[in-house]
Simulated assay, not measured.
Amino acid sequence: MTHGKRILVVDDGMTTRLYYRSVFEAAGFAVDEAANGLEGLERALVERFDLLVVDVNMPKMDGYALIERLRGDPAGRAVPIVTISTEAAGADAQRALEAGANLYLVKPAAPAALRHYAALMTGVAA
Results as ranks from 00 to 15, higher is better:
Phe24Leu: 15
Arg77Pro: 03
Ala34Leu: 03
Tyr104Arg: 05
Ala34Ile: 06
Ala35Cys: 07
Lys107Gln: 01
Asn102Pro: 02
Ala119Cys: 14
Ile7Val: 15
Leu45Trp: 02
Met58Ser: 05
Leu103Pro: 03
Thr122Tyr: 08
Val9Ile: 11
Lys5His: 11
Gly13Met: 12
Ala30Glu: 13
Val53Ile: 03
Val106Met: 00
Ala78Ile: 02
Asn36Glu: 11
Gly28Asp: 08
Ala93Ile: 05
Thr15Arg: 12
Gly40Arg: 04
Lys107His: 00
Lys5Leu: 07
Asn57Thr: 03
Leu114Tyr: 01
Ile84Gln: 06
Gly90Asn: 07
Glu39Trp: 01
Leu70His: 06
Asp11Gly: 14
Thr122Trp: 05
Pro59Asp: 12
Asp55Ile: 08
Pro108Ile: 08
Pro80Val: 05
Arg77Asn: 05
Ala34Val: 06
Asp50Ala: 09
Pro111Val: 14
Ser22Leu: 07
Thr2His: 03
Asn57Cys: 04
Ser22Ala: 13
Gly28Val: 08
Val31Tyr: 10
Tyr19Gly: 00
Val53Asn: 00
Val23Pro: 13
Ala119His: 15
Ala119Pro: 05
Glu47Cys: 10
Ala96Met: 07
Asp92Asn: 14
Ala34His: 06
Ala112Lys: 14
Arg48Tyr: 01
Ala89Asn: 12
Gly4Gln: 15
Leu120Phe: 10
Leu114Ile: 14
Ile81Pro: 06
Tyr104Asp: 05
Glu25Gly: 01
Gly90Trp: 02
Ala78Asn: 06
Tyr64Lys: 09
Val10Thr: 12
Leu52Trp: 06
Val79Pro: 02
Ala118Pro: 12
Pro59Lys: 10
His3Val: 08
Met121Phe: 13
Pro80Ala: 05
Leu97Cys: 02
Ala35Asn: 04
Ala96Gly: 05
Thr15Trp: 11
Pro80Gly: 05
Ala118Val: 10
Ala75His: 06
Thr122Gln: 05
Met61Trp: 04
Ala30Lys: 07
Lys60Gln: 13
Val106His: 01
Ala35Glu: 10
Ala126Glu: 09
Ala65Met: 13
Leu97Ser: 01
Ala125Ile: 08
Ile67Ser: 01
Ala93His: 09
Phe29Met: 05
Ala96Ser: 14
Ile81Tyr: 07
Asp32Glu: 13
Ser22Tyr: 02
Ala93Cys: 13
Leu51Pro: 02
Ala96Trp: 05
Asn36Cys: 14
Asp12Trp: 07
Ala88Lys: 14
Ala118Ile: 10
Met1Cys: 00
Ala109His: 04
Tyr117Phe: 13
